[in-house]
Design a protein around this nucleic acid. Structure first.
Length: 814
DNA sequence: CTAGGGTTAG
């Protein structure tokens, strides 16, 4: 007795994992006696170890097996889930001639493995069965197919499917139904359809399998069509059909259909079924009808975690984030239920949207304590939550720890970078695509394109455009809109227009985007023209349309048109101006130099003035040399956003221009106290597909001497003009010498100079910089465009300046 | 003697 026991126990230890041992055993059919003592935990993986049961098993087979009761015993052991005991008995049994060809006991073993999630083992058993010359029957295959489904292995599944034709089981209803489910769950819905189509007889389960199969493949419409077609053929749907059809309604947000099925549920008397109830709640939640869902939920009794999850998820999806968190609390306090992994996944988006970092962290902590991690979906939700809460380091850590990264988690990390303005990190992560087994999707591009708009060079922009055109998303309106904007921001307004013109389907956003594209390039006439075209084509302008349009009027100095559009917005389109519209109008007023009007305008705004509003006034004050108003604006801005670096810099420049050095020094100290640093100016120019980056006083470039020489020659040539012009708006000439950072060596000039010597005569030069261009560089750029007869395009952090023949598209106001 | 379909998820 002791000897056999040890044989049994040590068996699992002849390799590192129980699974491995199990495979080996099934393949060889032999046990290995040369092993160490069993690790109990590993055995436990195969189900609860039951010593009493094992003794009973031994009593059955040793010394004299009592033949007739063996099969029944095997069945009982398998049902108890103790597969290693079942295996022991099974091995003894097939040593007897009576049992080796008994299909039934093989089926029992395969069933046991399948039901216990040992899919690989089930399939191995099936293979061994064939090897032993025992043929599978109509009972064998549903289990084997289910195991193939669990393995998500199309190859194994198709091998089994092929065998079915050979032995003539391909038309068996049970087997075919299993095949439908298998193909659908693996994502090969057309294979499932084919199996279904070729069935000579279909029963209720066949239809249900198709209805749920379509839902699994994300095609709610086909699922519902199937649901109705089945009824047209006189088949009465049962609770399984209802549950799947409700899932289809959720998928397609078909409230009407959902209500209809809800009625059917009541008529058929399924309304007390918890699963049906949960499906209905989910449907109402997805259709944004949480009041219906809650009314139903209140009547469920007893309520389980799944129902609670559906409520929590429903509230999160319909943007009722506080309710979602409240339900989590109620679930624990009221029903004394423990949240599971799905609860966590449902509640994290609510924490994210509420920026409730504390709640998000406690969910994270709970997940750790409960041992829910690692779990790819949960980890992705955590990355998303930390990203939304602005805790990029936490998001990065959560992402870095993931063992099973996939497209969605990768997208979440990208989005986190982009949302927090870490565009360069996003671009670096995006390059990872070449090492990943998955392909980017619409979400990827939607996330990454704004990062390209902000931080990429035109060349990189063209690359991503090409990449997208080669994917199946080349005609996606949403993504093409982002590409239009990206080209505009990368400096190529022509390319932006070309993409826009070639779009198959334009929506309002497409028009808004192209109007804005012309706006930031200072081509207000084109914006206005496109606005009329848009109206002619029957598109209804929305709030954003007017933001684009008013921005364009202000940037291009089209004051009258601006007021006209502003007035028509409310009058003709019933759109109340929002804070952005007020901001654009302030820019416009500021441009006219009427600061009094600007102040009055702010007072009359019906909304609370944001930092952006005061920022407009600050810019206007600066351009009109009104230090008092600038100080007032700055105070307002800093009370709202104490870390607004740009505000400090602008005011400091104004003090410098006025020679108030002690104030400059004071601001400098304030900035240091706040822990702020002036953004380092940096200009980028692309030459022969190489990106060259310059900072102020840069001497790192290989051709530095040449760059400075050329700059010197140009400056000398235009020096007299500069002297004449440089009284400019508000700068005493001698001040330039006092400035620590002389404009003589500003990064833009270095970039332009390098552009001039590295490109063919006559071709335009494109420079992009991260801060606003300064007055001096603006004048110099105009002169360079004149004397070199080149078009120079400089994109600063707000607009693109097109310098040509000594003039700039911004008409010297920016 | 054994079989097939179902609820919540980034």
């Amino acid at each position: 007795m002791a000897a056999t026991l040890s044989v049994h126990l040590t068996y699992f230890n002849d390799s590192n994992t129980p699974q491995k041992a199990w495979h080996k055993h099934i393949k060889t059919g032999r046990t290995n006696r040369n092993s160490r003592i069993v690790n109990k935990q590993k055995v436990m993986k195969f189900g609860p170890f039951n010593r009493t049961q094992l003794n009973t098993v031994k009593a059955l087979v040793e010394p004299e097996p009592s033949t007739c009761s063996l099969t029944r015993a095997l069945c009982n052991i398998v049902d108890s889930g103790c597969m290693e005991n079942a295996l022991y008995l099974f091995e003894k049994m097939i040593q007897l001639d009576t049992y080796i060809r008994n299909t039934y006991i093989w089926n029992v073993m395969i069933r046991g493995c399948t039901n216990n999630g040992l899919f690989r083992e089930a399939v191995d058993f099936y293979c061994r069965m064939g090897f032993e010359g025992v043929q599978g029957d109509n009972f064998t295959y549903p289990f084997v197919i289910k195991s193939c489904t669990g393995l998500l292995s199309l190859m194994e599944g198709q091998k089994v499917h092929a065998k079915l034709f050979k032995i003539g089981l391909d038309l068996d209803v049970y087997v075919s139904n299993s095949l439908i489910v298998m193909y659908a769950k693996m994502g090969y819905i057309e294979f499932a359809e084919r199996v279904f189509r070729e069935m000579p007889v279909r029963d209720l389960v066949s239809w249900n399998s198709m209805i749920s199969g379509y839902v699994a493949s994300g095609d709610g419409c086909s699922s519902l069509m199937c649901f109705y077609e089945m009824q047209a053929l006189g088949m009465k749907p049962d609770r399984f059909s209802m549950i799947s059809a409700l899932g289809a309604c959720s998928l397609e947000y078909r409230l009407h259909c959902g209500k209809e099925i809800h009625c059917q549920v009541l008529k058929c008397g399924f309304e007390l079924d918890v699963m049906v109830q949960t499906s209905i709640i989910d449907m109402y939640g997805k259709c944004d009808m949480m009041d219906y869902a809650e009314r139903l939920f209140d009547r469920i009794s007893p309520r389980n975690v799944v129902a609670w999850n559906a409520m929590i998820g429903g509230y999160a999806q319909s943007s009722h984030f506080l309710e979602s968190l409240a339900f989590l609390r109620k679930m624990q306090d009221g029903d004394k239920l423990n949240p599971d992994i799905i609860t966590m996944i449902n509640v994290l988006p609510s924490c994210a949207q509420l920026q409730a970092l504390l709640e998000g962290k406690s969910v994270h902590g709970y997940a750790i304590r409960k041992g829910f991690l690692p779990h790819p979906v949960l980890e992705t939700a955590l990355v998303d939550m930390y990203g939304e809460c602005g805790k990029l380091d936490m998001a990065e850590r959560a992402y870095g720890r993931m063992t099973k990264k996939n497209l969605i988690s990768w997208n979440a990390m990208l989005a986190a970078y982009v949302q927090n303005g870490w565009n360069n990190k996003a671009l670096v992560l995006f390059q990872d695509i070449w090492h990943q087994p998955f392909k980017p999707d619409a979400f990827t591009f939607a996330s990454i394109l704004p990062a390209y708009s902000e931080s990429a060079t035109l060349r990189e922009g063209k690359q991503i455009h090409g990449f997208i055109m080669k994917s199946e998303l080349g005609t996606n309106t949403f993504i093409l809109n982002s590409i239009v904007y990206m080209y505009a921001k990368c400096g190529d307004i022509g390319a932006a227009r070309e993409v826009f013109d070639r779009m198959l389907h334009r929506d309002v956003i497409s028009w808004n985007t192209i109007i804005m594209a012309y706006a930031i390039h200072g081509f207000g006439r084109f914006s206005v023209q496109l606005f009329s075209e848009m109206k002619e084509k029957g598109f209804k302008p929305n709030e954003s349309t007017f933001v684009s349009l008013l921005s364009s009027c202000s940037i291009s100095g089209m004051v009258e048109e601006g007021w006209e559009y502003y007035n028509s917005m409310k009058r003709d389109y019933g759109i109340d101006p929002g804070i952005e519209h007020y901001g654009c109008m302030l820019d416009l007023i500021g441009r006219t130099g009427n600061l009094e009007l600007a102040k009055i305008f702010i007072d009359e705004i019906s909304l609370f003035p944001t930092a952006r509003i005061w920022g407009s006034l600050l810019t206007a004050s600066r351009n009109n040399q009104n230090i008092e108003l600038a100080e007032l604006s700055a105070r307002h801005i800093l009370s709202l956003e104490h870390d607004n670096t740009g505000c400090y810099v602008l005011l400091s420049n104004m003090y410098a221009e006025a020679g108030r050095w002690e104030d400059v020094e004071r601001l400098k100290c304030l900035m240091i106290k706040e822990g702020l640093e002036k953004t380092k100016g940096c200009s980028v120019v692309e030459i022969n597909s190489r990106t060259c980056r310059f900072i102020n006083n840069d001497r790192s470039h290989a051709e530095t001497n040449m760059i400075y020489d050329v700059l010197d020659i140009i400056m000398r040539k235009i020096g007299e003009d500069i002297f004449v012009h440089s009284f400019t708006k508000f700068r005493p000439l001698d001040l330039r010498k006092n400035r620590a950072n002389s404009p003589q060596k500003h990064s833009v000039r270095l970039a332009i100079s390098f552009g001039l010597i590295s490109t063919t005569i006559g071709s335009p030069i494109l420079v992009r910089k991260n801060t606003r261009i300064c007055e001096d560089c603006h004048i110099v750029a105009k002169k360079i465009s004149e004397i070199t007869r080149r078009e120079i395009i400089v994109g600063d952090s707000k607009v693109f300046h097109h310098f040509r023949d000594g003039h700039c598209s911004c008409r010297d106001y920016w």
